[in-house]
Amino acid sequence: MRRTPNYNLILGCTLTAATVSVIILGFFWTPYEPDAMSIAERSVSPCAAHLLGTDNFGRDILSRVMQGAGTTLEIAFLAVSIGATCGTLIGGLTGYFGGIADEIIMRVNDAVTAFPSVLLALVAVAITGGGKTNLIIVLGILFIPSFARVVRGEFAKQRNMDYVKNAKLMGVTNLRIMFVHILPNIAPVLLSSIAIGFNNAVLAEASMSFLGVGVGPTESASLGRMLLDAEAYLFSAPWQALSAGFAITILILGFALISDGMGYRPTWRPVAKRRRKADA
């Protein structure tokens, strides 16, 4: 028997590792200054000097993609951290203890989930004012319900398992049961929903910035912001939109494959044996 390799996880990790290393490189070194404008080199198509061309201000797109992907990832990372931490706490407590509080919190949760999250985020950012910090907080809060729901379901399932009952019988406190015993046991589910959450966060950042309520023009480049800038030149300088769009696609594909790979259970496929002569 041979184990089929987990292609999704391998490919996803490779893609993500590649993009993340380019992003980390972008923090220290970019081919050009991402914000340096050059009137002489406006909207240059991809060439040896500018691998992905330049935009209408003469800024090098490769440098901007490297920096912009970093900003996008940073926002996604912080938003998902907020969402996952609070969501795990809320979902864990309600799922473990159950009862009326559980019902109420989960109905509120459903109500929040019923609205499209980007729409809610738009409203929230419109009220609080744009900018990176606000965007992170708003997205983080909006991600809480989805995590809370997943974690709650898992906790409710685990709470009736024998090992939890047994831990209770040993006099282990509820908090310790929740975080030392149950949490590691739901890690596969939690991790794959974090990977999905990352995707949603990248997309949400891109759409919000594209709509002009996310990362401001004076802040660092972000992929969504670049798409917005590129929109006017979609036909005259398509490489602008293509570079940013492609970067988003690769980022998301990587995380999506990882999250797929997390839920992977290996199948064993029989290795063909040399055929023996049939029994007479």
């Binding site: 024998d162 009952k165 047994n166 831990a167 019988l169 006099g171 015993h181 590691p184």
Partner: peptide, 24 residues
């Protein structure tokens, strides 16, 4: 009760296969 459980009163169940935390 929790102070007694595990310390003065120990309990062992029928299901040894599932009564241990699989990840500890």
């Amino acid at each position: 009760m929790r102070l007694l459980q595990g310390k003065d009163i120990g309990v062992i169940f029928q299901e040894p296969m599932t009564s241990l935390d699989p990840l500890m």
